[in-house]
Amino acid sequence: MAAQSVSVTSESRGQARKAAPSRQARARIRGLWLRTLLTVFLVGLFVFPIFWWFLASFKPFGDIFALPPVFIFKPTFKWYSVVLGGVSYNQIMLELTGALTSTGGGLYYSVPYIIDSIIIASVSTLLVVLIATPAAYALSRFAIRRRHDLVFWILSTRMMPPIVAAMPFFLMYRRLNLIDTYLGVILVHTVVNLPLAILLLKSFFDDVPYDLDEAAMVDGATRFQAFSRVIVHYILPGLAATAILSFIFSWNEFLLTLTLTRTAVRTMPVAASTFDTSTGGTEWGFLAALGTSAMVPVFIFVLFVQKHLVRGLTMGAVKG
């Protein structure tokens, strides 16, 4: 598209003497360029902070705080060597500042947190998909009594503030001895993501015409087989998108995990929140590396589901 418009411009310039392009066409092209610039500027505005953190995680010690900010520097992997590689915090700080700081070492090593996050997000996603798919199919296909109310109830559970949910969960978990366990966090993430998954999958099922169910059954499939062997195939892309979104939301979930865990289970968002930055600027490199490690998986996943993201974020209500 861009090439086209450029060629139109140059062409029109070449032919300027013969037949000047209409005033309208010129105005349109100018408008297009103006719009492009404006768009680039605006997208840049939204993306810049992310880019900035990303850079900070590779910056050598002094450059993170250099003002005016530096954009050209020799990238260092020191921060990552502590955060992901398990190199001792004290060793790096000694190298960088020539002095031992009071903060204890080893805290920033975040591979255990990443593993916890992956375990919790994948198991809860699996549970969500297994439970939500049949339910979404039922809600999409059958005239269940009070279906409307059921859908609304499911939707309204998503609207509950997480801090409100956290309190009774905490009390319940104390009784059930589920505090600080994988099972506990997984189950909570499952219940948080279920409404989204059900409604999203229902909207994908709604897109598949009912004729296909009937065709499968005419061909000898039972009702359940029509669902499990035929219709599910048609929504596989939607199913994948739902699973990925559910994974992302579980990965990002902060408050419930914070309140229901102590030390045995620690996910990335909770880990990122525990560091005290009031002591000064020395820790920012680690934090930038830690935060970037938490965000990169999410960003990669988003690339896969961007087509369905509006639908996902509005729980199937808006098909972007």
């Binding site: 939204f46 902060f254 935060g291």
Partner: peptide
């Protein structure tokens, strides 16, 4: 911005 881990 909206999908990246809010805590981070």
């Amino acid at each position: 911005p909206m999908i990246l881990t809010p805590a981070a």
